[in-house]
Write a protein that binds this DNA or RNA. Structure first.
Lengths: 256, 256
DNA sequence: TCGCATATTCGACATTATCGAAAGGTGTTC
DNA sequence: GAACACCTTTCGATAATGTCGAATATGCGA
C-alpha cells in the first residue's frame, strides 16, 4: 500500500463525508500536518478529483469523479445485461427494482428502475446502504462468507429500530438465504420500506450482484408472483452472463 | 504535484479510456515498469477506486467512484438550485435541457432533463463534450478568457464535419457570446443535433455553469420564445445563487 | 484598518516509493 | 495433456521523493 495514494484516497473519503472542508479541517481529520495535506489536495485538484469551492477557501469533490463514475457504469457488464430485465421486473411487479454490488461493508446501487406508477421518485443509482441492513447486501454476504466474517467482526450500526445488528441472528439469516437464494428485509434500512433480493451469478458461477424489489412495508409480505418474477429476472441476467445454473453456489473461501 | 498521486490519477484516466487493462498494458501506457504500476493499482484497489474484473487478470474502474460521484452531485449547489428551473425549461420548450460545468477542455453535464415527449432517451448526466464543440462549453469559455487561451493554444479535434476548430473563428464567437450572453452550436458535436446555451453566475458574479437546450437540427433555428425561456432560466438560477445581476460580466483574468 | 486564523511556499531530511530481478500463475499452443 | 510464454506479483537495495516545520502570504472578521 503506497502511503501517498492511501492518504489521497482518505482525502476523498473525508470530503465524501463532509462535503466541504478546509485544509486545516482535513489535516485534523487525517491527523497530518496541514502542509502535507495541502500537497495532496493540490495534486488531486490538478486532476479534477477535488475542486476549490468558489468564493471560499474550502475544497470539495471534483467533477472528474462524475466522468469516471459514468465510465465505470458503462464498463459494468452486469449492468448492461441487467437493465432490460429489471425494467421488465419493475413493469410486471409495479415495484421499484434495484441492482446492487458490494462496496466494502455496503451495497452500492448500480442500477435502479423506479416504480412505474408515475409518482416523483428520486433516482437511487449511486446510493449505498450498509449491507447488513439491506436485502441486496444480505444476499451478497450470504454468498461471500469471507466478507460476511469480516463484517460480523465489527459492531453494526442500527439505521432504524428494526435494523438487525446481532451477528448470530444475521449468520442464521445468511444460511437461510443461501439455501433459498432469497433475502428479505423489513424496515431495516428505511422505516416504511421493505425489500426482497436474489443473487446474480456470472460465468464462473460466483455471485457478483443482486437484484431486489422494494415495496412499502404496508404491502408486506410480497406475493408469490413477485418472488417468481424476481427469480426469473436473476436467472435471466445470470444466464446472459454465462452462468450455467441458477441458483448459484456459495463462493469457496478465496479472498484476494 | 506529488508524483505517486499524479500517477494514480493517470491510472484512473487510462482506465477511463480503455475500460479494461492489465498491469502490463497500463505500464506501457504510463511508460513505467510493471512493478511500479502494480503497487499503484493495488493501492487504488484497496479503496475501491479500481477493481479487478472477475475471471480475468485485468483491472477496471471501481465502485467507490460511483459513490464519490453521487456525493459530488449532491454537493453542487448550482445543481440543486437549477433542477426545478431546468425541468420547467424542458417542459415549456418541449426540448431536452442540460446544465454543464467546466472540466478541463470539456464540459461535463451535471444535470439533464430529457425532452418531455415520452420517447426513450438516455440520461446524459456525466457525459462530457469537448468545450469547443458545444454551446455549453463555448459559453463557459467566453466568460473565462484564461481557459479559452489555454484551449485555443492546442490543436482542436473535429467531431463532425461541422465542428469549428479554427482558433480565430472561435475567438470571434466568444466575443459575440460574451456580448449577447448566448451561445449557439449547429451539428458541431453530434450530427443532427444543435443547441443554444446561456451562462449561470454565482454570488460573486462569475460564471460557474451554463444551461442549454438541445434540438434536432431540423428544427433549427430556435424560436425567440425558446431563447427567452432559456434566459429566464439562467436568470432565475443565478438569482437563487445570489448573483445580483444578469447577464454576468466576463471574469477578470485571475487564474488559480 | 488591524489582527488572527488559515492557506500556501520552501527546503533539509529521512522516510518511502521505485524499479530490477526473480518467483509464481495463467492461458495458450502444439 | 504437457511445456512454453507471457503476465502478474513479490521482494529488497537504492536514491529519489514525499514529508513536515518554519516562514510567508492571503483572506476574514472585528
Amino acid at each position: 500500500m503506497i502511503q501517498a495514494i492511501d492518504r489521497a484516497a482518505r482525502v476523498l473519503t473525508s470530503l465524501q463525508g463532509a462535503r466541504h472542508l478546509g485544509i486545516t479541517e482535513l489535516a485534523a481529520i487525517l491527523e497530518l500536518p496541514p502542509s502535507t495535506v495541502h500537497g495532496i489536495v493540490k495534486s488531486l485538484q490538478a486532476h479534477g478529483l477535488v475542486a476549490k469551492e468558489p468564493g471560499s477557501q474550502r475544497y470539495m469533490l471534483g467533477p472528474a469523479l462524475l466522468k469516471l463514475s459514468n465510465v465505470y457504469l458503462d464498463t459494468l457488464d452486469v449492468r448492461a445485461r441487467a437493465m432490460r430485465w429489471t425494467r421488465e421486473l419493475a413493469r410486471r411487479t409495479g415495484l421499484s427494482a434495484r441492482l446492487g454490488a458490494e462496496l466494502f461493508d455496503e451495497v452500492i446501487i448500480i442500477h435502479h428502475n423506479r416504480r412505474p406508477d408515475g409518482s416523483q421518485q428520486m433516482l437511487e443509482t449511486g446510493l449505498t446502504i450498509p449491507s447488513h441492513a439491506s436485502a441486496l447486501g444480505k444476499v451478497l454476504l450470504a454468498y461471500h462468507p469471507s466478507a460476511a466474517d469480516e463484517l460480523l467482526a465489527k459492531p453494526l450500526r442500527s439505521l432504524t429500530g428494526d435494523t438487525i445488528t446481532d451477528p448470530a441472528t444475521l449468520r442464521l439469516q445468511f444460511a437461510q438465504i443461501a439455501e433459498r437464494a432469497l433475502a428479505f428485509e423489513e424496515d431495516e434500512a428505511v422505516l416504511g420500506e421493505s425489500s426482497v433480493a436474489v443473487p446474480v451469478a456470472d460465468r464462473s458461477g460466483s455471485v457478483i450482484a443482486a437484484v431486489s424489489v422494494v415495496m412499502p412495508s404496508s404491502e408486506w409480505p410480497p406475493e408469490a408472483g413477485v418472488l417468481n418474477d424476481l427469480r426469473e429476472t436473476a436467472r435471466n441476467i445470470s444466464r446472459e452472463l454465462g452462468s450455467s445454473s441458477w441458483p448459484p453456489a456459495v463462493s469457496p473461501r478465496d479472498d484476494d
